[in-house]
């Protein structure tokens, strides 16, 4: 047996998983090869060391399991409502769509009413074509005045 093969078997040997013919061959090798014997000693010490991680003691008992089972049953009974999954998905999509549309409509901004240039022109007695520029200026004044009065209020 060479060292490479021996190294592969050492872990099994330490774990007590080596069949007896292989145990004999490995032991012969270990008695003659100090590097492999050293590795074997190390793996043995490692096993002892890692065994020092203490187990934990459970805090819960069978009653907690009964409660867990009841809880799972409740969840299942809710999810098992007599509506097929595809139908539930379509209904969800439709309701989301309706909600979205309604939201957009209700949030559409309401434009404040402002008089057009032609309306102002007719109010102050200017002809539509001659004095449109003046009317536009007046409309601008009107908007400014209405904004200011709104702010005061």
């Amino acid at each position: 047996m060479n060292c490479k093969k021996a190294e592969r078997l050492i872990v099994r040997y330490v774990d007590g998983e080596l069949s007896s013919p292989l145990v004999d061959r490995l032991e012969v090798h270990l008695s003659a090869c100090s590097p492999c014997r050293l590795k074997y000693e190390e793996f043995k010490r490692l096993s002892k060391l890692i065994a020092q991680w203490e187990p934990t003691r459970p805090a819960l008992g069978y009653e907690a399991l009964r409660e867990r089972i009841r809880q799972r049953e409740r969840v299942r009974s809710i999810s098992a409502l007599p509506v097929p999954r595809w139908a539930a998905a379509i209904l969800s999509l439709i309701s989301i769509g309706i909600g979205f549309t309604a939201g957009i409509r209700s949030e559409r901004p309401v434009r404040p009413h402002t008089a057009s240039v032609n309306q102002v022109a007719s109010i102050i007695g200017l002809s539509q074509h001659d004095d449109l520029v003046e009317a536009a200026i007046l409309t601008g004044f009107r908007n400014v005045i209405s904004e200011k009065s709104g702010a005061k209020r």
Binding site: R8, V11, R12, E42, R45, L46, I50
Partner: peptide, 21 residues
């Protein structure tokens, strides 16, 4: 499994080298 154990123990041997006496 043997291969996993070999790798695991080799890793642990390195990690715990200072504590193996």
């Amino acid at each position: 499994l043997e291969s996993l154990l070999h790798r695991a123990k080799t890793n642990l041997r390195k990690a715990l080298a200072d504590y193996m006496g």
